[in-house]
Simulated assay, not measured.
Amino acid sequence: MYIDQINNKKFNFILYLPIPLVFLGLIVMNYFATEDVNVEEMMQLMIDKLGTNLTFALMVGQLAVCCVILLFWVKFIHGQSIRSLTTSRKKVDWKRIFFSFTLWGTFTTITTLILFYLSPESFEINYDPIKFFPFLIIALLLIPLQTSFEEYFFRGYLLQGIGVVTKSRLIPLIITSITFGVMHIANPEVGKLGPIIMVYYIGTGFFLGIVTLMDEGLELALGFHAANNLIGALLVTADWTAFQTHSILKDVSEPSADYDVLFPVLVIFPILLFIFGKKYKWTNWKDKLTGKVHEYKPENEVINTIGNHD
């Protein structure tokens, strides 16, 4: 239903194309621009010149602006309500967003504390209230917009658009999950940890795509992604990560990645799917993940769809 609700005669493929072409084009350009550059050194030069907080704000702020542009395009160019881009429900379920945020935020905090307890030599106390609280304000303002853009673009705009064009649920799930992972290919983590980290990025894309299709909306994905980036940025930073922040802790260990990157993809994410599935009583998994997208028939539905502005 999340995809079906925009599958009608008002869907304009020509108007749909500019956003993904421009954004995906920028990803390709960014990748080739950084291919022969030491990203870690480039980041350090920016921090030395502008400061950590301003560098962070500029990096995250780009995607925050993209979020505003995307929502403007959807609402005023497509004439589609933001609600229908977010959910198939009559209104956005904020309880779902907060539940997902709290669940993953709590898990992230607990695991970070356990790692700090088990391996204190791998961390430094980085907390400086004079630097932390300005960063906290920047993070609270920008990170939810940054993560919302990624969700609205990949699990919203692309998932719905490709689903309408292909009349499939599985094809957009595969395409958006892989492109979500590829978007992170220029991150310094990839150069430091190696290509195996892409398993985590693409696996996360599949997890969030499955959540969106099964729950018929973006709410759980929005909450998870916001918690992942916000809580992570506030708790731990490192010299080799995409987010270098005035966080509470700094990871000073030598980074490495092996098959342990499979653990969240093969263990943690399935557990989360089980929790979400039980709580929200998900059924009919096969049809929701691999079935066909049906033509929207308003006489058979009770929700407002594209063309009804919220």
Score class of each variant (00 low, 15 high):
Ser100His: 10
Ile174His: 09
Val74Gln: 09
Ile3Phe: 14
Tyr117His: 14
Val60Cys: 00
Ile82Met: 02
Pro120Val: 07
Glu41Gln: 12
His246Thr: 08
Ile268Gly: 00
Val252Trp: 07
Val39Glu: 11
Ile197His: 00
Leu273Gly: 03
Thr283Leu: 03
Arg83Trp: 05
Ile275Tyr: 06
Thr106Phe: 10
Ala33Ile: 06
Phe116Glu: 07
Leu222Ser: 06
Ser168Arg: 02
Tyr127Thr: 00
Phe149Glu: 06
Ile171Leu: 13
Leu136Ser: 11
Lys278Asp: 13
Leu113Lys: 03
Thr87Cys: 13
Glu219Arg: 08
Met42Glu: 13
Val293Arg: 06
Tyr31Trp: 12
Val199Asn: 13
Lys95Arg: 15
Phe132Cys: 01
Pro120Met: 07
Phe32Leu: 14
Ile6Tyr: 09
Met59Gln: 14
Ser168Tyr: 09
Thr106Trp: 01
Ile275Asp: 03
Gly205Ala: 11
Gly181Pro: 05
Leu262Val: 01
Pro18Ile: 10
Leu208Pro: 02
Lys250Ala: 06
Arg83Cys: 03
Val22Glu: 01
Pro264Cys: 03
Ile162Ser: 06
Val22Lys: 01
Phe23Pro: 11
Glu121Cys: 10
Gln160Glu: 02
Ala227Thr: 15
Phe224Gly: 07
Ile69Gln: 05
Trp94Arg: 11
Asn308Ile: 09
Leu103Val: 09
Ile178Cys: 01
Phe32Ile: 15
Glu189Asp: 14
Thr305Cys: 08
Asn7Pro: 00
Ile178Trp: 05
Ile110Asp: 01
Ile162Thr: 10
Leu45Thr: 15
Gly25His: 05
Asp310Thr: 15
Gly191Trp: 02
Ala186Glu: 13
Asn7Cys: 04
Asn300Asp: 11
Ser84Lys: 03
Phe101Asn: 00
Ile69Trp: 12
Glu301Met: 14
Thr305Pro: 00
Leu208Met: 10
Asp310Ala: 14
Leu222Asp: 09
Thr241Glu: 00
Lys292Asp: 02
Leu193Gly: 12
Gly203Arg: 03
Glu219Ile: 15
Gly232Gln: 02
Ile77Glu: 10
Leu15Ser: 10
His294Cys: 04
Pro195Val: 14
Ile143Leu: 10
Tyr152Pro: 12
Leu273Ile: 15
Asn30Lys: 06
Pro20Val: 11
Glu124Met: 02
Asn38Ser: 12
Gly277Ser: 07
Phe32Asp: 03
Thr283Lys: 10
Val261Ala: 08
Glu41Met: 07
Ser256Gln: 14
Leu21His: 04
Asn229Glu: 05
Gln44Ala: 14
Gln244Asp: 04
Phe132Ala: 00
Pro270Thr: 15
Met1Ser: 12
Val74Met: 14
Thr176His: 04
Tyr157His: 04
Glu219His: 12
Glu216Asn: 11
Thr109Asn: 13
Ile114His: 04
